[in-house]
């Protein structure tokens, strides 16, 4: 099963946005299940920090609301605060992961 092809299929399905999303969601859960069980237990802490960084992808949502001209000021302010905290996650999460992974060395 090639997850990439399946996700691509999900992108082109022409049904309601909710169903398209559900399609991608369920398949991604399966992909996640298989990929995560393959992560070596020695790297479970970096796994958490990197998943933390990528869950800050919610940043994209914050940008779309904060940057939208139609957004009322209140919505823009809320999204801006969300943008700042999610951005802390992106920078902090990836950097601390890189720092940890650099510590893992082989013998000699």
């Amino acid at each position: 099963m090639n997850p990439v092809l399946l996700l691509a299929a999900a992108e082109t399905a022409s049904v309601s946005p909710f169903m398209t999303g559900l399609f991608a969601f369920v398949l991604a859960c399966f992909v996640g299940y298989h990929v995560i069980w393959n992560v070596t237990p020695a790297l479970h802490t970096p796994l958490m920090s990197v998943t933390n960084a990528i869950s800050a992808i919610i940043l994209v949502g914050c940008i779309l609301v904060c940057g939208n001209e139609a957004s009322p000021l209140s919505a823009r302010v809320l999204a801006f605060v969300g943008l700042v905290v999610a951005s802390i996650n992106v920078f902090g999460g990836f950097l601390v992961t890189q720092r940890m992974l650099a510590m893992y060395k082989r013998k000699g």
Binding site: L7, A10, E11, P17, F18, T20, G21, A24, F25, V26, A28, C29, V31, G32, Y33, V35, I36, W37, H44, L47, M48, T51, N52, I54, S55, I57, I58, V60, G61, L64
Partner: peptide
């Protein structure tokens, strides 16, 4: 992601969600 009809958020969230659940 569902709220914004954004598949990137849906997929990424699902990856992270399953990761945490497995851990």
């Amino acid at each position: 992601g569902f709220m914004l009809n954004n598949n990137l958020l849906i997929v990424t969230g699902a990856l992270v969600g399953s990761s945490g659940a497995i851990l």
